[in-house]
Design a protein around this nucleic acid. Structure first.
Lengths: 254, 254
DNA sequence: CGCTTCATTGACGACGTTCAAGACATGTGG
DNA sequence: CCACATGTCTTGAACGTCGTCAATGAAGCG
């Protein structure tokens, strides 16, 4: 779906209607958002925002995947966020971007002009409440990630990433995830790996060579299977979670 | 200041009045908070909350330092948050704690009974707004930290930690930070290191031996000086920031 | 077909961990 | 006052994981 095609869509038909920052909004609130919103497309590989730039908008990822990265002067880079559909980009109350946002696949964003959005947020608790909830979720994810970065081995890191992607992919619902292939066991999970080895390395604080080696190792151990380079089949999620070093099943605390 | 001593204090005299979750509140809002609040002390080394436990309260650190940690079954632990005065503990809308919170020094907390606090938050945008702001700040800090964990060398990690502690210590204001000693240069920064080597290791994803070695190395290089084991003097902040691998001066993006 | 991009594999070495011993400070009991 | 235990920190030596450098392979595209 391109930005042009989206433009004609009503919010109530939006694929991320029930998960995005607007999910709590009533009809009149959606209408208020509608007047300050516009859609924008980004091609795979294109930057969405560059660290330090002025931000003229905030918004939601409607489709595609984008990455949030930080870079040191000498080029070392660390991914600090993985933006899937419904995730929010930008920080109200701050004018400059703190991170690089890059479209990893083709991306469509639902953008709100920043100033009007901030004003609207003050008047619309439903938006602020949802944004708080989403920010708290992101903070939890960031903290889980810190354990991965700080304490896990390369192999556990790869298993953790696979586990996260499998879970998030599943939670998008069958219509957004890939169809289960014919040869997959019931209970098996599979997903498309939409990141390059380098992007995975930046996610996990590894080199791309180590990523490649550990993927091969997990494949040889039968923890995952690959179809092509980018489609992953997990025959047994519990096994994968074990390899990730996570004790509990990773179910969310409530 | 003990919990008992705090109990008699009015919110307007509270040392964290202008930074905590209540900082935006008007007099009547403070009064509403006041009826659901109570103070509680924790001795150094004592747990405040254990991961998985039911949370009966949320609240602010009034004085002292606490740590937020995650632990794997085999004992590997990663610190995911360092709680200084005015920082908020607990997540509204969730009943179980996701992390271990441990008092590193003696700690006094201003606690709010969780249920009433959540109800109050719905009616009081000033609280929700401030909480959103604080959560966004924490998310930024977590992301900075991810770069440290994923991409920096042991030496850079230590320098980064020192740099963060020096900065946060300074921002607490002179009355909360230690007095500048007699022999310190103007422009020099100094602070008390209120973490053990092991806590620093858990913060940085290192072993305590590596922490010890790198501190010695920075000392020998003249980047820092030590008075005893726990008081750090930074003769030249720029030098320290260079060692941390941070290009810009670490000033906040606005 | 050559070119580019992405991924795999191997050899080697550095950095940080592991294991172990010892230093130093503080507190306790004989 | 000294002997001894305990907790924190430092230092050394050996090891291993992961990073670095380099060659090769596989897939897509003009």
């Amino acid at each position: 779906m391109s930005a042009a095609q989206m433009q004609s869509l009503d919010c109530s038909d939006c694929p991320i209607r029930h998960r995005a920052v607007c999910s709590r909004c009533e009809a009149d609130e959606l209408e208020a958002l509608n007047v300050i919103k516009y859609y924008r497309s980004f091609q795979a590989g294109q930057p969405v925002i560059w660290s330090g730039d002025q931000m003229t908008f905030v918004g939601s990822v409607v489709s595609g995947i984008a990455t949030l990265t930080q870079t040191m002067e000498d080029g070392r880079t660390q991914m600090v966020g993985l933006l899937l559909p419904s995730d929010f980009v930008g920080r109200p109350g701050r004018s400059g971007a703190a991170y690089n946002v890059v479209a990893t696949t083709d991306v469509v964003m639902c953008c709100f002009r920043k100033k009007p959005f901030e004003e609207l947020m003050v008047r619309t608790p439903h938006i602020a409440q949802r944004l708080l909830e989403m920010t708290l979720d992101e903070l939890d994810a960031a903290r889980e990630w810190m354990l991965v970065l700080g304490r896990k081995t390369a192999r556990e890191k790869i298993a953790s990433l696979m586990s996260i992607l499998a879970r998030r992919n599943a939670s998008l619902g069958p219509e957004l995830g890939p169809e289960p292939g014919p040869e997959e066991m019931p209970g098996a999970v599979s997903f498309d790996l939409k990141l390059t080895r380098e992007a995975m390395a930046d996610y996990l604080g590894l080199t791309l060579e180590t990523v490649s080696r550990q993927i091969t190792a997990l494949k040889k151990a039968g923890v995952i299977r690959l179809e092509g380079k980018r489609h992953v089949i997990v025959p047994d999620m519990r096994r994968l979670i074990e390899e990730a070093g996570d004790d509990s099943d990773g179910g969310l605390v409530d």
